[in-house]
Design a protein around this nucleic acid. Structure first.
Length: 332
DNA sequence: AACTGCTTCAACCGCATCTGG
DNA sequence: ACCAGATGCGGTTGAAGCAGT
């Protein structure tokens, strides 16, 4: 049993759009709007296209105020910093770049920006770029404030600060319809604030090490790949996977117990998602006493999971003793 | 000029989530 | 609460264009 196709594939044109089709679609939408029904739209507009295809064409190409062409340095930085903090959430990243589409940004990242960061200039296949130069570029793109004197005074911590994205508009919950938005302002404030915000929002960033670039001096410039997480997963993934955040939190002076809760602990046991904090509780290292753990979990009080159940020290999953609380980043 | 290999990007696909009945 | 259809999203594909030989 396959999934029902979204449209009659036999009568649907595929491939590149012709100027006539573009004109028809644009004219129709400008006249009548989408009518809240993309599936019916192509028929009404006289197009032999799938609704999904129309939607994509409109959103990525025909919609007004779409920006095409080169990305600016500022846009580069925003993409890099957001990618470092939330990973490949292109739609969220696109929401921060007016006129850019998620598809655009995804393509740009995959074809150019990633290579730029790794020191492989597009259409310039020089195999051995000076490592120092490469490192500088990565540093500049990911941590502009640390390499420019204008922002250099923000942090005194030995770790590179996350970029200060002053140009970003305040992020409202409406913008994404999801709670993890609190993660973003947090990222703009420095490690301890981020930690606090992650704790309070119930979401955390799990850093992995999808890409890492070694430089000649043996140090490693890590481009951390984050995924927005929820309470249902307290990542304690094994060693290498978590080392990005671990070293970050470590350098930030966040004590080990807290790092562990944030998923930064290296080499620890995995805490499975659906059992959430209850298993975390069960598996907490013996050296942490009840009071310490209780204090750490105390921040849960007053929050609810997506089933509307209260989270508490006594019932960290909000499951009433059983079950999961898969928040999917939705309202907790 | 012809060929080859690489890059780019628009479009497709399948899955997850949302929404309304 | 459940289900089916609609929508949104991220990963992948493939044609077109470009550069090098």
């Amino acid at each position: 049993m396959g999934r029902a196709p979204c449209c009659d594939k036999a009568n649907v044109k595929k491939g590149p759009w012709s100027p006539e089709e573009d004109f028809k679609l644009k004219e129709f939408i400008e006249k009548y709007g989408t009518g809240g029904n993309w599936i019916a739209l192509p028929h009404k507009a006289g197009l032999k296209r799938c609704g999904k295809s129309c939607r994509l064409r409109w959103l990525n190409y025909l919609r007004p105020n779409i920006k095409h062409g080169e990305f600016s340095d500022d846009e580069d930085r925003i993409i890099c910093s957001l990618f470092a903090s939330i990973g490949s959430r292109w739609s969220i990243i696109a929401a921060q770049l007016p006129g850019r589409t998620d598809n655009d940004i995804k393509n740009y990242w995959n074809t150019k920006l990633k290579k730029k960061l790794l020191g492989i200039a597009p259409s310039q296949r020089t195999p051995h770029q000076q490592p120092q130069q490469q490192k500088q570029l990565q540093q500049q793109l990911l941590f502009p404030s640390s390499s420019s004197s204008s922002h250099g005074s923000y942090y005194t911590s030995p770790i590179p600060p996350l970029p200060v994205l002053e140009s970003l508009p305040p992020i409202s919950q409406d913008a994404f319809g999801t709670v993890p938005t609190t993660t973003f302002p947090a990222l703009l404030q420095g490690p301890s604030y981020q930690y606090q915000m992650m704790k309070e929002s119930g979401h955390m960033i799990m850093f992995g090490s999808e890409q890492s670039c070694s430089s000649s001096d043996g140090s490693s410039t890590q481009i951390s790949h984050g995924k927005e997480m929820d309470y249902s997963y307290i990542g304690r993934g094994g060693g290498a996977e978590q080392m990005g955040l671990e070293s970050y939190l470590c350098a930030a002076g966040i004590e080990e117990t807290h790092r562990w809760l944030l998923g930064g602990g290296g080499g620890g046991r995995q805490v499975e998602s659906d059992n959430g904090l209850s298993r975390l509780w069960e598996e907490a290292p013996l050296e942490y006493n009840y009071e310490e753990i209780k204090q750490l979990l105390g921040s849960l009080n007053g929050y609810t999971n997506n089933n509307g159940h209260n989270l508490s020290v006594d019932d960290p999953t909000g499951s009433g003793g059983r079950g999961s609380f898969k928040s999917q980043g939705r309202v907790m």
